[in-house]
Design a protein around this nucleic acid. Structure first.
Length: 599
RNA sequence: GGGGACGUAGUUCAGUUGGUUAGAACGCCGGCCUGUCACGUCGGAGGUCGCGGGUUCGAGCCCCGUCGUCCCCGCCA
């Protein structure tokens, strides 16, 4: 504000005035969030980014004439004097509740049409409407708080990373497509007909080359673009990772840095919620799949899966014999109704199971249930002991030949049971590392493919690649999981060209193809690459966990919907024919589907 | 690509066994009201029951199709 002259819009914000300001003449601007007209006295809740202040207007004045007819969410400016409220009129629920501003003059700054949904009071609104009018949705206090929390978290991450000795570097967002991974978003080149840039799925090769360049301890809040379908915890199109990479490190060094960061960050923002003490438990991938059926187990859920394949190997019970047999003990499950188990079976069948067996442990220790008669007394005893099932418990059992499918079903049952029975520990962050991921898996055609990042160092190095069954080779590849969310994925990288060529050869890439597709990285490795490794925690998911939101769109300002459309901006959209011509692009409509509606 | 849930006023919802003119609250418009803060109060406007077809004397309700949103599987090195 210039000396002696009042600012055009405001002397204070709407969250600022206190009893100590009583007597001051002030100017406020903001949104008419709510109003209460008592005829003889007219109140407005004036709101801005900082808070809400009650202003009071006397009838019969020019200000009343102007303000009384305005709809909610109109933008106005008011001048007036700060007055202390009478004791009985103080609102302890508002930080500005001890005062109000008695309006002497008012100005209309921005008109509004009737809002398509209520900004205040905040009510439930269909999400497509919220996304179309996101600028209104973001005015609501919960969304406003989430976005501010996000900002503070990111600021804290940067501060903490710098304190840990990391340096922030930027990398390009127009780069080259590379095989492996998700589908790319492509950007056509005007100057190179038929050629395309790709938006980076992650700055993977760049960050490795930053290490090769002799920098160390890189980090970046990096935008990542992947053309994959959305989930509640996965925003379609783009998201942000805290991308980091370190030179001359072992897996343990990376773990230590990330544990320090996350434990500090979570404690800073959720002091009310204990987080797993560091070092976080390390669970081998194979153990996670066995015990939880998932590589992102929610450790707040105490239920575990038990493998019973061995005890049924020679069984005369044909449904189990020779198959992979796995079970979950449900404490107190014997008291559950037939319907309860039928619903579990329905869920299992929905996932592709042939059926679901269940047994209850009766008061005399005997087993009861549809398959009980097929079990010998010895088997029954062994089953109870292996599942730690006691009197009053129930055991559900699945048998199948496809282990992967079975894990998925059991994981779903475990999640569902945990929720349904209220077993999930609340108000706590349970973190763990999943380690020793397999280097390879078989793809749909039965071919050997990378199961994770192709740039990971195989455990055992070249020797393992040359002499081991590829499917048994583990990688220095790790995930960090919190409350069932995969927070990040990382690896110690393969920094030796010969091991890299061999690793790709096993996945079906010849040397020439590696040279052309991964030219920059393989070249870099040939000129003195340091051993290095890193990880990339998902920023959106971290915010989601700290904000306690079940949906990632609640912590993103302008998210796309499930069909990867921005309903506010109307993206994607058609472009002018001359733009296409310039880019040497011709659109070929899919044969069956009708062209998308023009907006 | 597949499975599920939902779709009634601007918004949130109700709507009986298929039966006359589809209701309520909030919002909007117009009154009244000097202490509210989710103000109260009186009145008013506002509906192609997502869309299309079918069954029926009669459909918001039943059947088929379709569209949209969300959740899940596939996908996500």
């Amino acid at each position: 504000m210039q000396s002696g002259e009042i600012h055009k819009y405001r002397t204070h914000t709407c969250g600022e005035l206190r009893a100590s300001n009583t007597g001051s003449v002030v100017r406020l601007s903001g949104w008419l969030r709510n109003r209460r007209d008592h005829g003889g006295v007219y109140f407005i809740d004036l709101a801005d980014h900082y808070g809400v202040t009650q202003v009071i207007i006397a009838p019969g004045t020019a200000s009343y004439e102007l303000l009384s007819g305005l709809p909610k969410e109109t933008v106005i400016r008011v001048d007036g004097m700060v007055v202390a409220r009478d004791a009985g009129a103080i609102n302890p629920g508002m930080v500005t509740g001890e005062i109000e501003v008695r309006v002497t003059e008012a100005e209309l700054l921005g008109t509004t049409e009737p809002v398509p949904f209520s900004v205040f009071p905040e009510s439930q609104v269909p999400e497509d409407l919220r996304l179309t009018y996101r600028f209104l949705d973001l005015r609501k206090s919960k969304m406003h708080a989430n976005i501010l929390l996000r900002s503070r978290i990111i600021a804290s991450i940067r501060r903490r990373m710098v304190d840990l000795g990391f340096v922030e570097y930027q990398t390009p967002t127009l780069t080259a497509s590379s095989p492996e991974g998700a589908r790319d978003f492509l950007v056509p080149s005007r100057r190179h007909p038929g050629k395309f840039y790709a938006l980076p799925q992650a700055p993977q090769m760049f960050k490795q080359l930053i290490m090769v360049s002799g920098f160390d301890r890189y980090f970046q809040i990096a935008p990542c673009y992947r053309d994959e379908d959305s989930r509640a915890d996965r925003s379609p199109g783009e998201f942000y990772q805290l991308d980091l990479e370190m030179s001359f490190v072992t897996q343990d060094d990376v773990f230590k840095a990330v544990e320090t960061l996350l434990a500090g960050l979570f404690t800073e923002f959720r002091a009310d919620r204990p987080i797993t003490a560091t070092p976080f438990p390390r669970i081998p991938y194979s153990e996670a799949m066995l015990k939880y059926g998932s590589d992102k187990p929610d450790l707040r859920n105490p239920l575990v899966i038990q493998d019973l394949s061995e005890m049924f190997r020679e069984s005369t019970f044909r449904a189990f014999a020779g198959k992979v047999v796995r079970a979950i003990n449900i404490p107190g499950g014997a008291g559950k109704s037939r319907t309860f188990f039928d619903k579990l079976e329905e869920q299992a069948k929905g996932g592709g199971a042939a059926g679901l067996a269940w047994l209850t442990v009766e008061a005399d220790g005997s087993l009861k249930g549809p398959v009980a008669k097929f079990l010998t007394p010895e088997t029954a005893e062994r089953l109870k002991s292996e599942c730690s099932a006691g009197v009053g418990d129930a055991v559900i059992i699945l048998a199948d030949t496809e282990v992967a499918k079975m894990c998925r079903i059991l994981s779903g049952l475990r999640d569902n049971l945990g929720r349904q029975l209220g077993l999930i520990e609340e108000n706590v962050y349970k973190c763990c590392w999943i380690v020793d991921f397999p280097m390879y898996e078989t793809d749909d055609d039965g071919k050997i493919a990378f199961s994770h990042n192709p740039f990971s160092m195989p455990q055992g190095g070249l020797d393992a690649l040359n002499n081991q069954d590829p499917l048994t080779i583990k990688a220095f590849q790790y995930d960090i999981v919190c409350n069932g969310y995969e927070l990040s994925s990382g690896a110690i990288r393969n920094h030796q060209p010969e091991i890299m060529y061999r690793a790709f050869e096993i996945a079906g890439y010849q040397r020439e193809e590696v040279n052309s597709r991964f030219k920059a990285l393989i070249n870099g490795l040939k000129y003195g690459a340091p051993p290095h490794g890193g990880i990339a925690p998902g920023v959106d998911r971290i915010v989601m966990l700290l904000a306690d939101e079940p949906n990632i769109r609640e912590v993103i300002m302008f998210p796309m919907n499930q069909n990867a459309e921005d309903m506010m901006m109307n993206a994607p959209n058609t472009v002018r024919p001359e733009q296409l011509r310039e880019l040497h692009i011709r659109v070929v409509e899919p044969p069956t589907k009708k062209p998308a509606e023009q907006a």
